[in-house]
Design a protein around this nucleic acid. Structure first.
Lengths: 117, 117
DNA sequence: CGGTATCCGCAATGATACTG
DNA sequence: CAGTATCATTGCGGATACCG
């Protein structure tokens, strides 16, 4: 299924696709603070399942945002950290975070229109 | 997940939710250039359906990003433009767009992992 | 501990037809 | 021209069970 012509209209389109996953910005935020082990991340996002956490981390890894390092020991240990691209992405997201914070009260009020039910 | 007390963990979380719709950043991009009529937007995004375009515009309107103005004429005419919040959101998105542009070639290569099938 | 392997509900998206 | 209305699709995110 390659041969797809130009999936994105512009860089912004691509960037939103990368961080659009339900948990990705929260993972980015956690990993920006410091590297985390799998279990730490899972406990930090209490409502995420192991499958989904794995999926999101694997996608971020493929996108070059997250670095995954396994330590061959018993019990197994895996650490996730940000790559250089991940750190620069995080910086690029700072203004957006500030915008969201500034408009938070209104965005909470309109939450139900974006998530009916 | 319907209405909770605190739907968002942080401002970034909220902002991504607002622009996370499949077409929203493209609409923002078009409207930042100049106001557009409904049909102009539809022709600019050839693959969007009228129903989805209406939905996304209504959500952006509720979020205070987009201003909708109807002219009571025959044939009917409706113009969409950015509000002040919309313009500031657009500015906040600029670094993210630059990041996406800089990493575009890699993001195109990993497109299939985010969109299997 | 850090994952896979299945199964699945449901909201988001889409196609088509119709309307003021 | 600018939308609704209705029905179909699909794939994300989740629940649960099992593995090295």
């Amino acid at each position: 299924m390659s041969a797809r012509n130009k999936p994105y209209e512009c860089g912004l389109d691509a960037a939103v696709d990368v961080i659009g996953g339900k948990w990705k910005v929260l993972l980015l935020w956690a990993l920006a603070e410091r590297p985390h082990r799998f279990g730490e991340l899972r406990r930090g996002l209490p409502k995420i399942t192991e499958k989904v956490l794995t999926q999101q981390l694997r996608e971020l890894e493929a996108d070059g945002i997250v670095h995954r390092e396994t330590f061959p020991q018993v019990p197994p240990r895996v650490e996730y950290s940000l790559t250089e691209a991940g750190r620069s992405l995080n910086e690029a997201l700072a203004p957006l975070g500030a915008w969201g914070t500034a408009h938070m009260s209104h965005l909470e009020a309109t939450y139900d229109q974006r998530h009916p039910g």
